[in-house]
Design a protein around this nucleic acid. Structure first.
Length: 572
DNA sequence: GCCGTTTTCGGCCCGACTGTTTTCAGTCG
């Protein structure tokens, strides 16, 4: 049973307890545990099998640990089943509607017999909802609007789609000299793989003018709201962007607050409480005297709490506050640490530009080296290289490498891992390359054991240096392959095979919690773009974001090393 | 239900907005 499935059960329990009117603290305990399970870098099922102590997971105590064990070992949880039996099927889907919480949901169910979104829609339309005590026309209207919005609105948007749009908007706003401190907040700033609405923040003395300029930008498709300090707009792709202008003297605490995550802020506030401090978006107040201290920067805010600064990517409410207390937040990897890209394509296979063009683009980005890794001829992959063409490409790369200054070009391949775990090119040829990147591109529906063995076989192949996009997921499009990821990590660590953090925004594979776990197990990682054109080399920053979310320092990432050191690690 | 340089019992983050009411409950982030 996957962590996400376990987490869902506990989130469901929290919802049901809310409907039941349980005390809020108990509900919060289940929510907290659900979130911690979801973010856990280790497979809970594995922990249970090995008899590990689940209470090491933050928010999991004796009772929840017992429930997790029952759920994972039997596939069922009696407590959950009994809870569900108390309510009509489908009532918790009402909670998905913004504006409908547990109190309203339970009344809709009890007083109107509503237990699905369709029922509710009908009840709004015929006026029954508005007739309930303490509800009215406005509430009913809002429910209807939200239901309709849910049907048309996109899911959360991949960060790779959102960030470029937001940056375009930010670039236009930068022209206003009176707008200062313009920055993103929320999950976008934390570099989560998908984002909901976008929050921009800044400070300005002439707010009215800046907000008018914002809603008048050419990208704006629709203005949702505009007030004295905040405006919301829709840009193409149905992305909602909010711009919030605040007073300069509280900018630090406001940015901290709006960056989140919610759980991170809860932990900070609980901790503050113990120090007789009350934290809010306006600053830090002394609980005894009520005196409020304001902060212009986040750094000052964390410092006042006796904490090391915590980079936004780490603020997920796991262990980051504890670590900051111990001054144990590492210097995370930064873009400038990278010395090369180790997975790119050219027009020899399905890329769009020549080897030389890719090399020049890498040099322009300050890289020391670039590895050309076109596809092998594996079934289904466009223009993959067979033995003969690969030999010709190797010769061309050698020649170019000789001729070009300021960049080393490595001859490589992205070789297909066949369904049985063998590689798509003869080993003798692979042994002559500078780098071999192996990847699964076909037969992705294999059952877990078969898939795991297939990949293990490739990892153990002495010619394979890197396993690319290890789980093969495509965000929002294709589920990850079924694989025992822990076994992959252990084999990779054992054989010195690097795992890739594929920076392509549709992949981001490995993902953050996998990176964290792999790093713990001593697996070496690379960050690579899988670029199919020179401009895609810039996508590397999304990989850096994932690595930072996985607490990676430069030393954990192989392509931060100088060429010789990096090559020494490869099994050549 | 969790958790502890306040506590093994008694606490548990904080503020804003909205709609419906005459003082607040519910929801959200």
């Amino acid at each position: 049973m996957k962590n996400s499935a376990i987490a869902k059960v506990f989130q469901d329990i929290a919802d049901l307890l809310e409907l039941k009117g349980e005390i809020p603290f108990k509900i919060r305990a289940y929510q907290k545990a659900a979130r911690a399970i979801e973010h856990s870098p280790t497979e809970i099922e594995q922990m249970v099998k090995e008899g590990g102590d689940l209470r090491g997971i933050p928010g999991v105590g004796e009772a929840i640990a017992k429930k997790i064990t029952e759920l994972v070992t039997t596939g069922h949880l009696r407590y959950y089943d009994e809870l569900r039996a108390e309510f009509p099927e489908g009532i918790s889907t009402l909670l998905d509607i913004p504006g409908v919480g547990p109190k309203i949901a339970i009344r809709l169910c009890n007083e109107l017999g509503v237990n699905s979104i369709e029922d509710l829609e009908a009840a709004v339309v015929d006026g029954r909802v508005a007739s309930l005590y303490r509800l009215g026309d406005k509430v009913a209207e809002n429910i209807l609007r939200q239901i309709q919005a849910m049907r048309t609105k996109e899911r959360r948007i991949p960060i790779g789609e959102a960030l470029p749009v937001v940056e375009e908007v930010m670039a236009e706003l930068q022209g206003y000299a009176r707008l200062r401190n313009l920055t993103t907040a929320g999950s976008l700033r934390r570099f989560r793989e998908t984002v909901g609405d976008i929050d921009l923040m800044g400070t300005a003395d002439d707010r009215e003018r800046i907000l008018s300029a914002f809603v008048g930008l050419p990208q704006v498709k629709e203005v949702l709201a505009k007030g004295g300090t905040k405006a919301s707009v829709l840009v193409p792709g149905d992305l909602q962007i909010d711009l919030r202008l605040v007073d300069h003297d509280c900018f630090g605490s406001l940015l901290q607050y709006f960056t989140g995550s919610k759980q991170h802020n809860i932990i900070l506030r609980e901790r503050g409480h113990r120090q007789k401090l009350k934290l809010s978006e306006y600053g830090i107040a002394n609980l005894d005297t009520g005196v409020l201290e304001k902060f212009t920067t986040e750094e000052a805010f964390y410092e006042r709490l006796g904490l090391q600064f915590i980079p936004p990517e780490l603020r997920e409410g796991q262990w980051e506050v504890e670590r900051a207390e111990q001054n144990a937040i590492p210097r995370l990897i930064e873009m400038g640490d990278l010395r090369g890209d180790l997975h790119v394509h050219t027009d020899w296979s399905d890329g769009h530009e020549s080897i030389e063009a890719m090399a020049l683009a890498a040099r322009a980005r300050g890289y020391e080296y670039i590895a050309i890794t076109d596809h092998s001829a594996g079934r289904g992959i466009a223009h993959g290289l067979d033995e003969e063409r690969l030999r010709r490409q190797m010769a061309e790369i050698g020649e170019l490498d000789e001729r070009m200054d300021g960049i080393h070009i490595l001859a490589g391949i992205e070789v297909d891992i066949r369904a049985d775990g063998t590689l798509d090119l003869p080993e003798e040829l692979l042994s002559q390359l500078d780098i071999v990147v192996a990847a699964v591109h076909s037969a992705m529906n294999q059952e877990q054991e078969k898939m795991t063995n297939r990949i293990l076989r490739a990892i153990r192949n002495p010619h394979v240096d890197v396993l690319a996009h290890p789980t093969c997921r495509l965000l929002g499009e294709r589920e990850p392959i079924m694989v025992d990821i822990e076994a992959i990590f252990r084999a990779a660590a054992e054989t010195n095979t690097a795992l890739e953090i594929n920076a392509m925004p549709s992949r981001l594979d490995l993902k953050d919690i996998h990176v964290l776990r792999a790093k713990e197990l001593g697996v070496k990682l690379i960050i690579a773009t899988d670029a199919h054109s020179s401009s895609q080399l810039d996508l590397i920053r999304f990989g850096v974001g994932v690595a930072r979310r996985g607490w990676c320092e430069a030393r954990h990432i192989l392509n931060t090393r100088p060429l010789e050191e990096m090559e020494a690690f490869l099994k050549r």
